[in-house]
Amino acid sequence: MTNASPLVWEDDEYVYIPEELFQHLPPEYLERFETRKHQGEDVLRIADTDIKSLVRLAKAIPTTSSLSYVFHRLRTAKFDLTAEALMEQEMLTTAFVVTYSKLFISGSGGSGISRDQIPLHLRQVHDDIIELRHNRYAHNGSHTSIGSGIQIDFDDAEFRVTLQVNMGFHVGGRDEWEQLVRFLDGHIHDRLTKILNRLKAKTGYEWTFPVGPAPDWIGK
């Protein structure tokens, strides 16, 4: 089928017609669409709070997917005592820490996940990640895992300045990070299920969310 207007589009299931084109429909179709529109608006008013929760959750889903992939890369990265291997561990650790911390920011960009929802035995690990983000990766602040300075040597001809850097990290990430990743994946799924069930109870309609196969790196 070829769209009659650039404002009309379709996918495998539906043809989408913007509301501004309704006036051009035959009266019998217009009446049917107007009725359906009002039904949808009534349902959306009833479900407003849960839909806002769903929007916040939607922000977290891509982030948790990225987090699990970064951790997979960190876990499987080959490590030896070379500058390249050190920089790769630093790069992946930075990505993990920053991505994880995004899930716990406040404000309109937040995902609605709080520290209090994390299992007690993982809260100190969570706090350590947030501290890493604040004091090492988001700013050039001070953190016990990194330090730098210079050494100045002098002889009769010149001053020689040497950079000294101490960098600490967990090769492959901390073991507890895997527990946090698995917790967050399960937590997001549970929240999604609860929201969809509440929406069904409030509106009387089924609410579905597309779920595909788990990526190859999950669980590895």
Rank of each mutant, 00 (worst) to 15 (best):
D42C: 03
K78G: 04
K52F: 01
A77E: 10
L57M: 03
E13C: 12
E84F: 04
V15I: 15
F79Y: 10
L86V: 11
L67D: 02
V15E: 15
I61T: 07
V43D: 04
A47D: 09
E41V: 08
S53M: 08
K59V: 04
E13N: 14
E34L: 14
P26W: 09
A85W: 00
L86R: 06
E31L: 13
K37C: 09
L54W: 07
T64Q: 06
T49K: 12
A47R: 01
L74M: 04
H72K: 01
D50Q: 03
S66A: 08
E28S: 13
A60M: 03
H24Y: 15
A85C: 06
Q39C: 05
G40N: 12
R73H: 05
E20D: 13
H24V: 12
E31F: 12
Y16W: 13
Q23M: 15
E20V: 12
D50E: 08
A58K: 05
Y14F: 14
E84N: 05
E34A: 09
L25D: 06
I46D: 00
R45Q: 10
T49W: 01
L67M: 02
E34P: 04
V70C: 00
D48T: 05
V15M: 14
E19S: 10
L21H: 12
R36K: 14
A83I: 07
A77Q: 06
A58P: 00
A58C: 00
V15S: 15
E20W: 05
H72E: 00
T35E: 14
F33H: 09
K78H: 07
D12M: 10
I61R: 07
H38Y: 14
R32F: 10
Y69G: 00
T35I: 12
E84A: 13
D50A: 01
Y69V: 02
K59A: 05
R75C: 08
Q39T: 08
I61C: 01
K78Q: 05
P18H: 08
P27L: 07
L74R: 06
D48H: 04
K52D: 07
S68D: 02
P62R: 08
